[in-house]
Design a protein around this nucleic acid. Structure first.
Lengths: 249, 249
DNA sequence: TGGTTGCAAATGTGATCTCATATTGTGATC
DNA sequence: GATCACAATATGAGATCACATTTGCAACCA
């Protein structure tokens, strides 16, 4: 993953080429989701419709639709004035969120384990190897990205079209808070749970996979809570942050 | 609940009165959600942006935003042409959906039981009494509505702001299919599980509440599967149905 | 100096318009 | 009579506009 400056402008058709229907919206949605997941938008930050549209080089129209979807997915919340902002998660809601994560992702992990294939194990092992490398290099952004890829690859293997959107909604909710909070202390990254998950998959031990997946989630929750203030994550230098990220997913 | 013909027109301010911000959208959203829950929209039916807007007496704009949200909540799916339609649920997805229901709603029921109050039990008992009356009168529409109120009242008591939206998303997904399928046979309505839930609440037995809540869901799933074809619910007379419903929720 | 009021910029909402595309209906052809 | 092509219509996406409300800021008063 290259952390090069994003070209937020919507890719236009080169010269008289076809442009797919709903192309702008799709791009805007990816941009927003990626931004939320990678910490480009801070908890509490209000998103201006017009500014976002200007940043993307489009009219406010597609952005409105995208923001609506994100509000519906609880990734954003609307203020009394109709604006939307990134939710600030207090400890109690963080606990709620991660309790549901344990339930839902534990279920997905168990389902995935029951239909595991050598190909899946190989892919997960490869991702985890990259993750270990990123950890070794203290490359936090890649740690987060690869950790997400590991989990989602596993959950996708469950084959449930119902579970995935729900899990994605949860990740979008805690994403901004997590990605910001992990910048404060030097997070002691640890992929040992992932190794246990891989072992469980190889042994076709669904219960073991579920157990360590839940353990991984619980560990993450504790880490987040240890740095989360009562009013959610607060960063004195938050405003100074301006993440640059790319949109390839 | 009165099943009078809905006045789909957006309520306008009487005479120079204040009109709340986002009033039209809110009305449209309620209209759509209600319609999905009460079987006004059939699985497979495509929703035309302009027709819906015309029916509501507004411009397509608010409707677009509402449809976006419903798509994000997986209550609607978009066709290749960009239109949206009510999803048709096959048996496998129905199973998926109800497996997640068991997990999520079982969790909510358990949480609710742990913080149950006499007031909650009284309210649930009252709703269930109405439900029994509706069953006795073979008032299917009220059965569905009251059954929903029973479950949601229970889940709300869990106090989880994370769980509720997810559960609502699930209900919106199977709502149309369920409300249509229950019109085919004379469904043997049975609220005995609800009685067990009430007993469990009174005895502060969270495990019992969860157990019977899951049992209730599983029973519903079996009933749905028994009438669902391989391509989702099919009704020869589907097109002839035109439900009239009111929007008070 | 602290709180309040008033004005101006910014913002979201809803409507209207254009355009490219998808859908549908009709007619010609095999 | 069925199929395919083409035209007419319908539809969604995106842009632009108008307006009421909210927000932010600054001047002003206590």
């Amino acid at each position: 993953m290259r952390n090069e400056k994003i070209d937020s402008t919507v890719p236009r058709p080169k010269n008289g080429e076809k442009l797919p229907r709903g192309h702008v919206q799709e791009h805007a949605l990816r941009y927003m989701r990626r931004g939320l997941m990678v910490g480009a938008f801070l908890p509490g930050q209000v998103m201006s419709l017009r500014k976002l549209a200007a940043g993307l080089g489009t009219s406010p129209m597609p952005v409105r639709e995208v923001l609506s979807r994100l509000v519906a997915a609880n990734a954003l919340e609307e203020t009394k004035g109709g604006s939307v902002r990134v939710p600030r998660l207090g400890p109690e809601k963080l606990n709620d969120l991660f309790a549901v994560r344990e339930t839902l992702e534990g279920m997905a992990a168990e389902m995935a384990a029951k239909k595991s294939t050598p190909a899946l194990v190989a892919e997960l092992a490869a991702v985890n190897k990259q993750l270990l490398t990123a950890i070794g290099k203290r490359d936090i952004l890649n740690c987060l990205s690869l950790n997400q890829r590991f989990h989602f690859t596993l959950y996708e293997a469950s084959g449930s079209e119902v579970l995935m959107p729900l899990i994605e909604s949860l990740w979008l909710q805690f994403g901004p808070t997590m990605y910001i909070s992990l910048l404060i202390p030097s997070m002691p990254w640890n992929a040992s749970d992932h190794e246990e998950i891989l072992t469980g998959l190889k042994e076709n031990n669904a219960a073991m996979v579920k157990k360590w997946c839940v353990h991984d989630i619980r560990t993450t929750c504790k880490a987040l809570l240890s740095v989360a203030g009562s009013q959610g994550i607060e960063l004195p230098f938050a405003r100074a942050l301006e993440w640059q990220f790319d949109t390839d997913n």
